[in-house]
Computed example of a mutant assay.
Amino acid sequence: MKRTSFSAMECPIARGLERVGEWWSILILRDAFNGRTRFDEFQDSLGIAPNMLTRRLKALVEAGLLEKRRYSERPVRHDYILTDRARDFRPILVMLQAWGNTHFAPEGKSVLTVNTRTGHEARPIVIDAVSGLPITDPVFRTVAGPAASERTRRRYSTAPHPTPDEGQ
C-alpha cells in the first residue's frame, strides 16, 4: 500500500513530516548527530534491513538533510553528512528525546543530553526569541500566515482557542 504524500499540503508540519516523518529517518538523523556517517554504521546501530536503509538514506539526501560524499572508489562507498537543513532539526530531536524521557520511560532515562562543560543534564525548552517567553505560554496560538490559502485561514479562524490552563 502506497502511503499518502504530504508534500503538496500547505501545512508546514505536514511538509516537515514528508521529509522526516518515517521513524527510520528520524533514527538515522539521530545516529548522524551522534557521529555516524557510513552505511554500515547506520545498519549496525539500527538493525535495519539494507534495502530499507538504502531507501531512507536516498530520501534524506533528496530532502536535503544529508549530503552523500564518496570516500572510496573500489568498492564505491559514501559518507552521509548532515547538512545545514539537518542541523536545524537537532533541537527537535533533543525535544523529542526529553519528551520521551518524561512521558515514556518508566524505567528511567536511558539517554540524556548533557552540557559537556558542566556535566549537567540539559533541560530543553522552546522559547520565543522576541519575547523570551516559553512557547507553551498561553499568550501564543497558531494562526494563518501571510501565504495561507482561504481554506487554511478558515481552519485557523474557526479553531477553538485554548484557555490559559489548556495552553500549558
Rank of each mutant, 00 (worst) to 15 (best):
E121Y: 02
R3Q: 06
H78D: 09
T142G: 00
V111T: 15
E166S: 06
R141D: 09
F89D: 01
S131L: 13
L93S: 01
L96V: 06
A159I: 11
P106E: 04
R90D: 02
F42R: 00
L60R: 06
V111M: 15
V143G: 06
L65N: 02
F104W: 05
G47Q: 04
A98E: 14
E10D: 09
V143R: 14
W24E: 11
A147R: 13
T158A: 10
T118F: 02
G119H: 05
G16P: 01
W23Q: 07
P162G: 14
M52D: 10
T152R: 14
P124N: 04
P146W: 11
A98M: 03
I13Q: 10
I48R: 04
I13A: 14
F6M: 15
L17I: 03
R87H: 01
P146N: 12
R55N: 14
D44T: 08
K2V: 13
F6S: 12
E67C: 07
N115M: 01
W24R: 10
Y80F: 13
R15G: 15
I81A: 03
S149N: 07
V114L: 14
H103A: 12
A105L: 05
S157A: 15
Y156G: 11
A63Y: 11
M95D: 02
H103Q: 11
Q97R: 08
G64R: 07
F89C: 00
G119D: 05
D88N: 04
L60F: 03
S131T: 15
T4E: 13
G145W: 11
L17P: 05
G132N: 04
V20E: 05
R153I: 10
G64E: 07
E10G: 12
D40N: 01
E73W: 11
Q97L: 15
S149V: 07
L133S: 06
M9E: 14
T118M: 02
V114F: 03
A32Y: 00
E73D: 15
G16D: 05
R30K: 12
A86K: 00
R15I: 07
P164R: 09
R77E: 10
L53N: 03
P160F: 04
E73N: 13
I48Y: 05
T83R: 00
G47E: 11
P12Q: 03
L60W: 06
F140W: 02
I28E: 00
A86R: 00
P12N: 06
D84A: 12
G21F: 08
F89L: 01
W99A: 13
Y71V: 08
R154G: 07
M1Q: 11
I28K: 00
I92M: 08
R117S: 12
H120T: 09
F140G: 03
D128E: 09
V61Q: 06
L27K: 14
E73S: 10
A49Q: 11
Y71A: 04
N115G: 02
F39R: 01
A98T: 03
V20A: 13
E166M: 09
I125G: 13
L66W: 01
S110L: 11
Y80N: 01
R154L: 07
H120W: 03
L53P: 05
D128Q: 03
I135R: 07
D165Q: 12
